[in-house]
């Protein structure tokens, strides 16, 4: 057995993640923030591993 099998499993994992996400959450491009955070005037969301909950 070669890495073809495990690479295919990795691809299947990504696909399953995308299917799960689209089934459980909605996307709305009209509510998306500006393409660049820099200069947008909006505060960063804080969803980062260094951030304490707020």
């Amino acid at each position: 057995m070669t890495r073809r099998v495990t690479a295919a499993l990795a691809a299947a994992f990504l696909l399953a993640l995308a299917v799960f996400d689209t089934a459980t959450a909605e996307l709305d491009p009209y509510r998306a923030p500006p393409a660049l955070a820099l200069g947008s005037g909006l505060a960063s969301g804080g969803a980062h591993c260094s951030a304490l909950p707020r």
């Binding site: 660049l36 955070a37 820099l38 960063s44 804080g46 980062h48 591993c49 951030a51």
Partner: peptide
């Protein structure tokens, strides 16, 4: 950093999944 407003990270996303 410039696009998202926050530095490169990995762990938060995995925990969120």
């Amino acid at each position: 950093l410039v696009v998202s407003g926050q530095p490169w990270g990995v762990v938060y996303g995995l925990g969120l999944w």
